[in-house]
Design a protein around this nucleic acid. Sequence first.
RNA 1: GCCCCGGUAGCUCAGUGGAUAGAGCGACCGCCUCCUAAGCGGUAGGUCACAGGUUCGAUUCCUGUUCGGGGCGCCA
Length: 559
Amino acid sequence: MKPQLLSLLRQALDQVLAGTGVAAPDTIAVDATKDSRHGDFATNLALTLAKALGKPPRKVAEELVRALPPSPVVSKVEIAGPGFINFFLAPTAFQALVAEILDRGVEFGRNNAGAGRKAMVEFVSANPTGPLHVGHGRGAAVGDCLARLLQATGWEVCREFYYNDAGAQIGNLAISVQARCRGVEPGQHGWPEDGYRGEYIKDVAKSYLAGEKVHADDREVTAAADPDNLDAIREFAVAYLRREQDLDLKAFAVHFDVYYLESSLYREGKVEQTVQDLVKSGHTFEQDGALWLRTTGFGDDKDRVMRKSEGGYTYFLPDVAYHVNKWQRGFTRVINEQGADHHSTITRVRAGLQALGIGIPQGWPEYVLHQMVTVMRGGEEVKISKRAGSYVTLRDLIDEVGRDATRYFLVARKSDSQLVFDIDLARSQTNDNPVYYIQYAHARVASVMRQLAERGMEWDLAAGKAALEKLTDASELALIAQLARYPELVADAAEQLEPHQVAQYLRELAAAFHGFYNTQQVLVEDAGLRNARLALALATQQVLRNGLDLLGVSAPEKM
RNA sequence: GCCCCGGUAGCUCAGUGGAUAGAGCGACCGCCUCCUAAGCGGUAGGUCACAGGUUCGAUUCCUGUUCGGGGCGCCA
């Protein structure tokens, strides 16, 4: 409906501006009104043009309204307040949408903005040194939802998980497991200084000593069971913890297409190649025995060491090498979903990529950072520390509040906001979770369909579409107006990389449906009206299902 | 000292360059002989952190202040 109004306004605008020498604005704001007395949509176009035209806003509005071509979609146009133009839409414009939704089904709301281009979403990317915690859960929920939004808008999406299986952290993991193999407890003599103290390390050791075989999504290892073989322990521990993470992610219904190993960047010479290319670029210098990159030339506040004086590389080199590889794989669009504590890497990675001068655009890759998740339990904050072992894992959360609710909670807030996850609240108020409110709306439609069959009535699609003009109640038109917002909402959420918009929208849509359901009886005697209302209910169910699917939340038939 | 994010109802959080600022939870009052009451309707509750600026108009944009969180290493 909005595109039609925009087109009408463009035509009117051309006519009004003709001969004035004033250029038409690039965008025209047409927004759904908050107050129904202001019509269905409103534009402030006249207010924004008044100055350039040297006329009072209301005068400009009058000229625009006079120039508007007639349209079957618009039933009334009013000029209000300082110069707003309010559009009242014809009920048929709303009613026709119900048929469109039923025709398009799962396709309704999708668009082809991505035109089949390749995009990568890298997310979670946790090192295999412990189970996934709530912060990873937020990353998983947001990242997966971003991927789904991009897919819904025509992108070909690769979900990628990057991790380190060979660095210092992994070495620390190995000696921690080894200590546990030997029966050493944290704090005792022989416990490694920065060892991982969590109980799960004991489980890894037990499994290793038992000679178990573990199978993760990207690797399989049989334990050597020898406590003196540190290499074997390392390999086993990585596989074991990767498998644990896979189980967490599976429970969360998140899958990855590619697992990318930091170690492969070294093994395949990509890190060395990147160093050479950076040196060749002329943006490096030697100082104090180390090799530096002049990142200050690319917006950083200080230059960064690439190769330490002792010869090893700093962490950001493999990061740059990794992103060169992403670029070379043809991902002209890459979105990295990370915790906000990594924000300082953004400038450095981009600086490294710019220094290489290989045609990578300045703002590439894109980043979506999520703020910290604070976990409350028993009215107290639970500190998340792998080393201390006090821990709220993603799986705990899924077990306690369910996958759907966990996903919804973690994605329903702007990534920029810190998130307080109160476990007791989420547990005790399971029935009051917003996700159930949305799912219930979906299940209610399914229930109506069951009742329909029980009463020996039939649903007739053609009759429903033919009788849509019977949908005239305020609750019906309000519901359709919500449904009408969906395609634009998907486009906006995808464009702005904001999954929470979908979560918010679905709650509003569910509210509109519950309002309709309480006001109007669907299964009435009048077959025409019944089919029209069934059409509306089914269209709502379709949009709820489409939207819930974007969040990775299930749409139950029965609750 | 510098960088990033936030400060909106008792709590958790949406939202917006415009016309009376919203939801959920919590509180209070109503609604099932009727398609699942996991629902609906209503009441109470706000100087949109503070101060300047831009604007016809700012809670929204800019600057400063302040409070809270995170980050600033030849750690990753």
